[in-house]
Design a protein around this nucleic acid. Structure first.
Length: 425
DNA sequence: TCTGGGGTCCTAGGACCC
DNA sequence: TCTGGGGTCCTAGGACCC
């Protein structure tokens, strides 16, 4: 493979904690922990004591007694994030956000304006430092995956450029934990088989890995170990699900308390759904038992909606199924307890899919109207959508031609394909 | 390590259709 | 009447990421 390294992965260092240190001079160069019950983020000074995000607060403070703990200020982080993404947009329109504090940038088309990708990376870091007051690390490579690994190695406050040709020499000595998709469980399995570095993994046979990692994971990880990652920057990704959850602690809750909590969560997410102008077809309710076991119940509706009353009613039914189990009201709750509940709306679509509802008048001929609708679907989503669209009965009066939700991603691909996804050449 | 809140993606089995 | 294979959708659970 030849070509230039033009994909950047930009990642803010210890984001929440850095914002706190920026805004309060007393916190600078000190160990800072954001979050009380659980560590949401911590400064590099705290990391040196062994504090990690996701760790319990009690343990974190015992590892690092001198640390200052501050409550999170989500608005401040959101504002900082917006400012940083404005800096990104000044260099290239091809930005794919991964979270509040990181993004991929394709700068192939920006090099004639700002110089080679390595220079753009430096300029970006300087701009973010000067205009937002935060440290940014940047990895530059020919693939997304490698750019992300590089930014991780560049931390804190650095740049690493992996030139084409040097990729495997860079990648293979690194521990398998740097690979995307290797977490606690997978890492343990790999170590059990004597695989400790990316190079070890790259020399494995597919069939051997498959026997304990499964089909997909083995192919995926082997591809990454050989630096195969053909994914392009995707600038118009949309959320595929939306949810909210709440931890409840160990205290035993009554059935009606849980239903009220769920009502509040389901309403909150429904409001977000409408604000984002999306509709959802699947409702999933999550429940964590006092033994930390997760259980879920989900239901897919015949038609996507953003209506609070429908979503809330489904969430309530699913929650009752979890609380009561097969043996009647409250029979499970007393035994297992509940330490967390949550609700997620998924199979998201856009509302225009349900605005295509077609009224069938008395003795009317639906055929002409149906043809019109099919034409409209074809122009919106292409031939493939027409072939797979389904006709739904709605209260016996209205037929709605609804695009199957599985086509959501295909339609997104089609619409993005009409824009220049790749400014190379 | 005794656990927050927001997500993504994959798997496996069953139902259903052709 | 019995039977097969392929495809899609739905559900529950799990791993992983920031």
């Amino acid at each position: 493979m030849s070509g230039r390294a033009t994909i950047l992965h930009a990642d803010l260092d210890a984001f929440y904690a850095s914002v706190e240190q920026r805004d309060d001079p007393r916190l600078r160069e000190r160990a800072v922990i954001v979050g009380e019950g659980v560590v949401l983020a911590c400064s590099y000074e705290a990391k040196r004591c062994g504090v990690r995000s996701g760790m319990g607060g009690v343990l974190a403070r015992s590892l690092c007694p001198q640390a200052i703990t501050v409550p999170p200020r989500m608005e401040a982080y959101a504002e900082a994030s917006t400012q940083v993404f404005e800096q990104f947009a000044d260099f290239t329109p091809f930005v794919e956000p991964l979270s509040v504090d990181e993004a991929f940038l394709d700068v192939a088309g920006a090099e004639h304006l700002f110089g080679p990708a390595a220079q753009i990376a430096q300029k970006l870091r300087t701009r973010v430092r000067e205009n937002v007051g935060l440290a940014l690390s940047v990895g530059v490579a020919q693939t997304k995956f490698l750019a992300k690994v590089a930014s991780g190695q560049a931390k804190p406050d650095g740049t690493i450029v992996v030139e084409p040709g040097n990729e495997l020499a860079f990648l293979h000595p690194l521990p398998i934990e740097v690979l995307w998709g290797v977490g606690r469980v997978t890492a343990a399995k790999l170590h059990d088989h004597g695989i400790d570095t990316v190079g070890d993994l790259a020399s494995c046979e597919r069939d051997g890995l498959k026997s304990y990692l499964g089909d997909h994971a083995s192919a995926h990880l082997l591809a990454l170990a050989h630096n195969h990652d053909p994914r392009a920057i995707d600038t118009n990704r949309r959320d595929r699900s939306m949810g909210a959850q709440r931890a409840l602690g160990q205290k035993v809750r009554r059935r009606e308390e849980l239903r009220l909590e769920m009502l509040a969560l389901a309403e909150k997410v429904a409001a977000r759904l409408r604000k984002a102008e999306r509709v959802a077809r699947t409702v999933t309710v999550r429940y964590r038992t006092s033994e930390m076991r997760h259980e879920t119940r989900s239901r897919t509706l015949p038609e996507a909606t953003q209506q609070t009353d429908i979503l809330v009613a489904v969430a309530d039914e699913l929650l009752l199924d979890l609380i009561d189990g097969p043996h009647g009201p409250g029979s499970r709750l007393g035994r297992v307890g509940c330490t967390l509940i949550g609700v997620t709306y998924s199979a998201l679509g856009s509302p225009d899919a349900i605005q295509l509802a077609l009224p069938f008048g008395d003795g009317g001929k639906p055929t002409d109207a149906l043809d019109t609708m099919i034409d409209s679907i074809r122009s919106r989503w292409g031939d493939k959508a027409v072939a797979r669209a389904s006709l739904l009965d709605h209260k016996g009066e209205v037929a709605a031609l609804t695009r199957p939700t599985a086509l959501d991603s295909e339609a997104a691909e089609q619409s993005s394909a009409s824009e220049p996804p790749d400014a190379r050449q």
